[in-house]
Amino acid sequence: MPEPPLLSVRALTRSFYGVRALAGADFDVASGTITALIGPNGAGKTTAFQCLSGVVPPEGGRVLFAGRDITSWPPERISRAGLVRTFQIARGIPRLSVLENLLLYAKAQPGETMWSALIGGCRATARRARDRALAIARRLDLIGVANQPAGALSGGQKKLLEIGRALMAEPKLVLLDEPIAGVNPTLAERIAAHLESLRAEGITFLVIEHHMDIIARLCDPVIVMAEGRTLRTGSFSEIAADEAVQLAYLGMPA
């Protein structure tokens, strides 16, 4: 018997000023995969992330995550449940250091309530969080800029910090919105390798990307969206051979 998917999205709808950004999107993400979410510009991919993460409430449809209906949950609750998203345009806290940005996402931090901050909470937990943040900074090659303000990072480093912050939250599922857009090919390869090894450690990813070569290598399955709906789901080669997909991308059969 197949395991139920980690994430199920059913008939998700959302419009903005009469534009139907999501017109009934349906898809599943199975545990342990790096699933791609692709589609032409304006297909509704980012909007789907907005709804999944609770940033924008959907108008209709359901989102099930790890067996729970999270449809109308606020973003902080969704993150704490283990579904953490990144932003298409990197959005670190500019005047906090890279390390502090990572620490911000740590779970159950002592010293985050006024009382524990005053009396000085549990040092061991604080130390663990710091070690985790350092390990992530090292892993993502951010250790050299760990004490720099996030606002001073290069575009590629900001992308890495987006991933690092999400990892810090001990997620089950990470939603990555174009993690390698605007990144040089070498760094793109490195990010792909990071995702591979993180997947091996048990983290599931749903990735929006436009770089087909990386998707071909990294992602299985691939979900194609167009005009707010799910068009096809399958392996990359199935998708690439599909006429409806080619039509959606190019506006004509290839």
């Binding site: 993150s79 998203r85 959005r91 806290i93 005047r95 906090l96 911000l104």
Partner: peptide, 15 residues
């Protein structure tokens, strides 16, 4: 400080 600079990021961070 995170709330000062980007409330939504603070919420996504679980706060």
């Amino acid at each position: 400080r995170a709330i000062r600079e980007d409330e939504m990021v603070a919420r996504i961070a679980g706060k």
